[in-house]
Design a binder for these strands. Structure first.
Lengths: 186, 186
DNA sequence: CCGTATATGTCAACATGGCTGACATAAATT
DNA sequence: AATTTATGTCAGCCATGTTGACATATACGG
């Protein structure tokens, strides 16, 4: 197999000169390093769950749904749509399967009986925890060799990467750091 | 709209008790915080590029291809398949479009003329830089308020999140921190 | 030189998970 | 009573992943 040669083609067509792979990024230079690290890190991060999900006949879409329902019991369908930013038709497909197979149950809202509050069953929670365990192991390993301030820096970085305009309810609780859970309960 | 109520349904069907949203994560507890922050951070990170790509009639798949070709000129098709971990048929669809529309050019390998070395054109590089600029702005903003060691911690964290078994050539250069580019050139 | 392996390309079919548009129902709201 | 809202559903389209089969050109080993 050929190597990455970092050269322009000899006598080839008009091509751009290569971006520096060895140069240090100055101020305002694209952060190629972080961009690519995010790609690879996220790929492997979700890959952990993907393998397990396959044995259940589920995909990533099912994971996201059952994860957030498990973590935020009583989430409504509308809330879930805000979090996932997909259409109700897309959600419906995977949600129906999770309901049919007993990973999630619905309950009509108390104050508004049109709403369908969603709850994970024990079965659903077991799946979520199995997947979270895999991902947590990877995270714990990645945090292990960071200094004491390293973990906080990573959390701070990730929070600052997230859009602040129009956060949904789940995102609000996450960004507020759990300090005021009751503040979002009207 | 209903609020996330963090309660079990009254008299509802058998559901699991809620995971703690307000409790601090102890050792060995799932890192719900990082798991969810990664989800939201990556969603918004790739969202930046998605909007621009739409105006070009391209998707994320096109971005990944032209990005890595631009960054690692002379990448072969096989190299690219290793990096993206997709099938050659999937790659072929988007690569063909990028070739047809003049974002990428091919050149037969020097030592092995079966190979198709890939290079971004000026047009391709302009697109990649436009997208990288957006993502870099987000990254720079997220790194801004971290202490001096914060940036290093983030890089170290992301590197440690990546699988080390069987890294492709691109990943090798990234993980080696650019110190020995020529080491990978046989 | 010949046979086999490799690098790439292509066709066809299929799965997942996004999307839009249209429409139905029940319950809340005015 | 009329309208709005929360949810569900049907039908079809698109992007992007998959597998399997097969073609071509080139490299390589005997």
């Amino acid at each position: 197999m050929a190597d990455i040669n970092f050269k322009d083609p000899v006598g080839g067509p008009a091509v751009a000169t290569r971006p520096s792979a060895a140069r240090q990024a100055g101020p305002d230079e694209p952060r190629w390093d972080i961009i690519e690290l995010l790609f690879f890190a996220y790929r492997d991060f979700v890959g952990d769950a993907d393998h397990v999900l396959e044995t259940f006949g589920f995909g990533r879409a099912h994971h996201r749904v059952v994860h957030f329902v498990c973590r935020y019991p009583g989430l409504t369908v509308a809330d879930l749509l805000d979090v996932l930013r997909i259409t109700k038709q897309s959600l419906s497909r995977v949600l129906k399967q999770l309901l049919d197979e007993g990973y999630i149950v619905q309950k009509a809202g108390d104050s508004d009986r049109r709403q369908r509050l969603l709850f994970a069953t024990a079965k659903g929670e077991a799946l979520v925890e199995k997947l979270a365990r895999l991902q947590t192991d990877r995270i714990a390993h990645a945090l292990r060799d960071l200094g004491p301030g390293g973990g906080e820096a990573v959390g701070k970085f990730l929070r600052a990467m997230i859009d602040r305009d129009d956060p949904d309810k789940v995102l609000q609780t996450i960004l507020q750091g759990d300090a005021s859970v009751k503040d979002i309960a009207t």
